[in-house]
Amino acid sequence: MDTTKHDQYVEFSIGNEKYAILISEIHEIIRMLDITEIPNCQSYVHGVINLRGKIVPVIGLRSMLMLESEAATKSTRIVVVNHREESVGIIVDKVNKVTTFTDIQPPPDWVGGINGSYFSGIGIHEDDLVGILKMDEVLLRE
């Protein structure tokens, strides 16, 4: 498909792996804020933050993708996306760049132990392979 090649993505890292989200799904990217944890919640929900007077839940992409969790560093960012008319913050290790892909391959059934339905495709840019996350699918998981 021709059009997809011009779509812009925000590429970020979790550990050594690279993922991307369609830029139009992203509301904003902010630095780490104070997170108020919610007792007895699903483990991937880290808590809620005050985003300019709005209460926004924050989830850890690491735990969503069943990776080891890690303490926040200087480069940790919260990517705020729109999900079903709400904002949801996603904690990532590092935001790399805004990018486009020369080719996007359909995702395999499983990507390194993760259900392939979380991905809308595998973006190829020069030598890099980047998993393009389908945020609605990722966030809908119960």
Binding site: C41, P57, E86
Partner: peptide
């Protein structure tokens, strides 16, 4: 509200 994403706790 904590929002629908967090749901009832």
């Amino acid at each position: 509200s904590l929002g629908a994403f967090v749901g009832q706790s």
